[in-house]
Each structure stands twice: as structure tokens, then as C-alpha cells.
Design a protein around this nucleic acid. Structure first.
Lengths: 162, 162
DNA sequence: TCTATTGTGGATAATGAGTATCCATGTTAT
DNA sequence: ATAACATGGATACTCATTATCCACAATAGA
């Protein structure tokens, strides 16, 4: 039970896009090369990010992607939910409906929703809310603080040429 | 990205075992019939619960399963971890290692562990801790509070005969 | 207008985890 | 001894994820 690899690709792709100069886009081709994966595969991931309103696409020559809103308004959970979808960790499929006590409805009248589901979803919400509090901007600033001058320059140069 | 169905089978199986009289065991066969699944499949789930120290097995005639400790000492998370394992939601496979900046090690010297992983794991820990606070006993008492006298009797009678 | 560049989406295959069953084996009360 | 019970190996089926190829649409610049 893990997040898909697409979440990691999304995080690391978006991380570099924070430094993109205003009105400059970056092509899928360049990010795919950066990660060593194919263009068409990464495009599926960016398709999800686009539908979630995290990035914006510009078609045609010199087109590409840019962040659809400020990095401070893109949370960790926004990115995860864009890739993983909105489904819950515990999806009660009501196996109780099949159990032997069901034959007598007067005896088997559980309250719905199932309490197990409620408890697990409440715990899940704690996690989600924590992830909603950390933004892509925060991640970017924390990480860049520890980058050397040379590394920041290397990234900036690379972004200039793509 | 969801918990496996085994988690639900485990919860609903253990729920009935709380009412089991002292030193009385229940056979896999009866629980499997209750849920409408095969004995061998449910035995895989109970094998995990046994290895996690949640239930204890007695082989041979009149054998079966019983809780290995008090229901108040079995948390929601204990049950989930027994079935799902201990792996984390976000397992950073370090795609950065493949990226183009790696060719120059003096430039690419990220601190490990990856900050993305740290943040997600901290959020996950909030969820885990919340699930560690709710016990099987608590679930049992909350649900039984709302059960009718007839239903409680039906369950008790069923447990007496298995 | 033509063309090279860039994103979009359908079709498809490979992989791997989860779901599920059957059967052989070991243990134990009667 | 035997019937009842758990255990573990082998196997197959299903399904989401991972991944690629290709045809198509959009667009900037020659």
C-alpha cells in the first residue's frame, strides 16, 4: 500500500518549475530527460497535474508547461491528490452484508456508515490536513537554503537553456 | 491507493472474537462461513494476525483461534499493520540519482533523507498515532451500545455453538 | 502557407500486488 | 486410528500501475 511512483515524478518535476522565469515554459521533453523516462509517460502525469489545476500547458512551438498558480498555493496534498485521486485509504465494501446474521434483518441493523471506516477516515484527515499545510514554495526554499552557490547556478543555467 | 480487503476481513473477524468466552476458541471455518469466503483464504489473513501477536492458534480437534491479548491492547493500527506490513506510504526511490545534475557530484550533493519523504512520513505518523489510540475494545463497546438485546443474544448464541 | 515543435489522447503491453482457491502436511482430542 | 483443525506451498486470476508507441491537434516562425 504505497503512493505510486508518479507522485515522486510530480514532486521532483514541479520542484524545478518553481525557479522558472515568469512567462517561460518548460517542455515535457526536457523534464523527461532529466528523470530518464519517456516523454509520453511523463505526459500522462502532467495531464493529471493539468486537470488538477496545478500546471498550465501551452501547445505548439516554444510551448510547454508552467505552474498554474503560485508555488505557495500548491500544497503537498494537492500534488498527491492530483496523481492518486480522491479515494480513501479504507473503502468499506460492507462485507457485513454477506454475513449470516443478515438473514434476520430485525437482528442485523447496523448503523451506517460503519464505525471502522469513520475512525480510519478521521485519522486519514489528520494526515491530509498536515500535508495541506506544507507548500511547494516551502519545500523549494528549505531545499535551496542548503544548496551550494554552484548548484543553484547549475539549475538556473539549465532552466535558461530548456 | 487503498488498504487491502484483508484489513476489512481482519476487523470484522476480530470484532466477534472479543465476545468469545475465556479459553474458548473459534475455528477459521466458522468465521469464513460468516463472511462467505473460503477457509484457506481467511487462514492467510489469520496467519498474519498470528505473526503480529494479535491472535493465538490452537491446533488439532477443538482447536482454533483466540485473541492473544486483551482487546483493549489491540489498536486499530496493530490490525492494519499486521495485514498491510510496515512499509511507508511514500517510498522515495531516489529518482534524483538518475537526473542530469548527477554527472557533476560537486554540484549534486543533496542531503539525505529527501525532504519530501520526511514531510510525508511526519504526516503519516499523525495518522498512525491516532489509529494507535483507538482499541478493538473501544470499537466493540461503541458498536454494542447500539445493538439491540436480540442482536447481542444472537451473536452470543452463535459464538456458543461454534 | 509550410514545417518543425510541442502537448493530447488512444491503444497496447509488461509488470507486480492483491485476491482467491486447492491440496498436502502436521497437530491433537476423542 | 481417525476426524477436526491450522499451516504453508503452489497456482491462477484479476486489476491497477508502469511504460511505450503512434496518430493527431495546435502553434510559432520561416
Amino acid at each position: 500500500m504505497q503512493f505510486s511512483i508518479g507522485v515522486e515524478y510530480a514532486f521532483h518535476s514541479l520542484f524545478y518549475m518553481v525557479d522558472l522565469p515568469e512567462h517561460k515554459t518548460i517542455g515535457i521533453k526536457d523534464i523527461a530527460k532529466l528523470h530518464g523516462i519517456t516523454v509520453t509517460y511523463l505526459s500522462k502525469i502532467f495531464s493529471k497535474l493539468r486537470k488538477a489545476g496545478i500546471v498550465r500547458s501551452i501547445a505548439g512551438v516554444n510551448g510547454g508547461y508552467e505552474l498554474a498558480k503560485g508555488a505557495e498555493n500548491i500544497s503537498f496534498w494537492d500534488i498527491i491528490e492530483a496523481i492518486e485521486g480522491t479515494s480513501r485509504l479504507f473503502h468499506c465494501i460492507e462485507i457485513r452484508k454477506k454475513n449470516i446474521f443478515v438473514n434476520d434483518p430485525s437482528i442485523f441493523t447496523d448503523k451506517c456508515p460503519c464505525l471502522i471506516k469513520v475512525v480510519i477516515q478521521e485519522a486519514e484527515d489528520l494526515m491530509r490536513n498536515q500535508l495541506k499545510m506544507k507548500s511547494l514554495r516551502w519545500l523549494h526554499d528549505q531545499v535551496h537554503k542548503d544548496f551550494s552557490v554552484e548548484k543553484r547556478k547549475a539549475i538556473a543555467d539549465w532552466l535558461k537553456d530548456v
